[in-house]
Structures are given as structure tokens and as C-alpha cells.
Nucleic acid binder design. Structure first.
Length: 283
DNA sequence: GTACAGGCAGTAT
DNA sequence: ATACTGCCTGTA
């Protein structure tokens, strides 16, 4: 099996805060700035402050990718997609940043999400100098909770500002403890997330999959919904409409989790990347 | 001008 | 249990 390609993974729409400067990629990962430089085709990783072998953590190189592929290739389409995009991997995000990222993602598009998050880092994050350039860390929940709704709105968050502030307060007060969700199973972790106002099915599943080790989570956004209509109509009892009601979301996500098994979320990433590629989406 | 873009909560039916 | 609605902002 071919090795992963970090550049494809960071450009696959799962991780928003990356930018290319002087032939290197720089990303905001919580309180750190991470860097990827490709030298003669082989990647070199550094982080500031140092964070030993961060690539292993972020690109999930600690996963047993052979076992994952063995499981996923039972599905013929995902099998072809794994061969078609050999460099693509699921990434592991920092939980708070991940949650705020997907809170920004409602009813908008990737360039806009990137702008919102970029503005948040510049207004509320801490500056850090790397390679003589200035970058900004991602603000903590405590910092976001202390910002006024107007400040948040001025980051182009729009109506999302209110929910984002409220979720940040929940975290700052300890009502919501993301780290504790790592240790419990998918269903229980999800039901805890759903109790927080502002977090619905889709955001909960994204946070669980991308940052809390729930590889069996299967988030369904409009793109995945399109992919399922195109390729898995045989698994659906009726055609998918424009929007899924919470209950429809739940039963569909559950069905796909059963179909793909314990690494369903990994399969979701290939479906997502493929349908966006075919739609000609760069971001 | 207006439709639409990686949702969610509140309210009405 | 489902349907409808409003919500910021920017681009096509």
C-alpha cells in the first residue's frame, strides 16, 4: 500500500487552518503552529513549540492502516476510492479547535469557514513568530467565552457568534468536557454533545470522528448525502430529500455505520473527498 | 436582484 | 414526527 500524502490530506477539507507560504505549509493546531516542508518529495515536519513527531498524531500514523483498509475494502466503491486516492488519510484534530471549526461551518462554504477561523485566530489567538513570520494560535474556549458577541461577529461569524460564545462558556465552566468524551463509546459521547445548545447531529459527529477517536462516527453533510444518493440508493428505503430531519439523520447514519463497520468514519472521508473532487471543488 | 453555500433551534402543524 | 422559518456574509 502506498504511503500517505500530507498535502492531499490537509487540502481535503477536513482541516481548515492551513496556509502555504514560501513553499511550506503552516497550520494552526490549538496552541501550536505546525509546519510541513516537502524536500525532494519527502515531507519534513516541525512544530512550535516543539511537539515530538506530531505528524504521527495528526495524520493518524499510529492507526493500523492495513487493518482499516482490510475492513473498508469489503465495500467495492470504497475499495476503488482507496486505490484512486492512495495519499488520503483521516486527520486527527485538536478537539476545541475542531468543535469551533464546525460551529462556523453551518450554512456556508469552505473559503468562508477559513476566513472566520483565520479572523478568530488573529483577534483572539496569540501571535507566534515562526521562520521570521507571524502566525496566530487558536484561542482557547475561555478566551472565546470572554469575547463579546460583537467582537465575535466582527470575525464574520454572523448569527453563529451567539452559539459559539455559548458553547465556549459551557467549556470554560466545565459543563462540557471534551476530553472526557474520548474514553466513552460513540453513542454515549454523542448524546452528551447533543445536550449542548448549538451542537446538532452533524457537528457532534464531526467532532467525534475528527478529534475524539470515534472512527465509527459517520457524519452526514450535504456532500455525503449526495454521495449516498448516487452510490448507495440500494441501501436506502427512500430517496433522500433536501434536508434530513434529526430522526432521518440518525437512522441513515446508523445504517451506514452498520454497513461500513468500526471504521465507517474513515470510509466517509473517501466518499467526501471523491464527490468534491468530481464536483471540481478545490476547497 | 436573488439563489445558494459542509446546520441549528424554535415554533407550528 | 415532520415541515417551515430565520439567521450572517459573500459570491455567482
Amino acid at each position: 500500500m502506498q504511503s500517505f500524502d500530507p498535502v492531499i490530506s490537509i487540502n481535503s477539507g477536513q482541516f481548515f487552518l492551513w496556509e502555504k507560504r514560501n513553499e511550506s505549509w503552516y497550520g494552526t493546531y490549538g496552541s501550536r503552529i505546525i509546519k510541513l516542508k516537502t524536500i525532494d518529495g519527502s515531507p519534513e515536519f516541525t512544530s512550535f513549540p516543539e511537539f515530538k513527531t506530531f505528524e504521527k498524531k495528526i495524520f493518524r500514523l499510529d492507526d493500523d492502516i492495513k487493518a482499516i483498509f482490510a475492513e473498508l475494502t469489503r465495500d467495492p466503491l470504497v475499495h476503488t476510492l482507496i486505490k484512486k486516492y492512495p495519499g488520503l488519510r483521516l486527520m486527527r484534530q485538536e478537539p476545541e479547535q475542531c468543535l469551533f471549526s464546525f460551529l462556523c461551518a453551518s450554512n456556508t462554504n469552505i473559503p468562508m469557514i477559513r476566513r472566520m477561523l483565520y479572523n478568530l485566530t488573529r483577534r483572539l489567538g496569540a501571535p507566534m513568530s515562526v521562520d521570521g513570520m507571524e502566525f496566530f494560535t487558536f484561542p482557547t474556549a475561555a478566551e472565546i467565552s470572554k469575547a463579546t458577541t460583537e467582537q465575535l461577529r466582527s470575525c464574520s461569524l454572523g448569527y453563529r457568534a451567539k452559539a459559539i460564545k455559548e458553547v465556549a462558556q459551557n467549556i470554560a465552566e466545565g459543563t462540557l468536557n471534551l476530553e472526557s468524551l474520548r474514553r466513552i463509546e460513540y453513542r454515549e459521547a454523542k448524546s452528551q454533545l447533543l445536550q449542548v445548545r448549538g451542537i446538532g447531529n452533524k457537528i457532534a459527529d464531526c467532532v467525534l470522528l475528527f478529534s475524539l477517536e470515534k472512527l465509527d462516527a459517520f457524519p452526514i453533510d450535504v456532500w455525503i448525502s449526495r454521495a449516498l444518493s448516487q452510490h448507495y440508493s440500494w441501501l436506502l428505503d427512500r430517496p433522500l430529500g433536501n434536508a434530513l430531519t434529526p430522526r432521518q439523520y440518525d437512522s441513515l447514519s446508523e445504517r451506514m455505520r452498520l454497513h461500513f463497520g468500526r471504521y465507517a468514519g474513515y470510509a466517509q472521508q473517501y466518499l467526501y473527498y471523491d464527490i468534491r473532487q468530481r464536483a471540481g471543488k478545490k476547497w
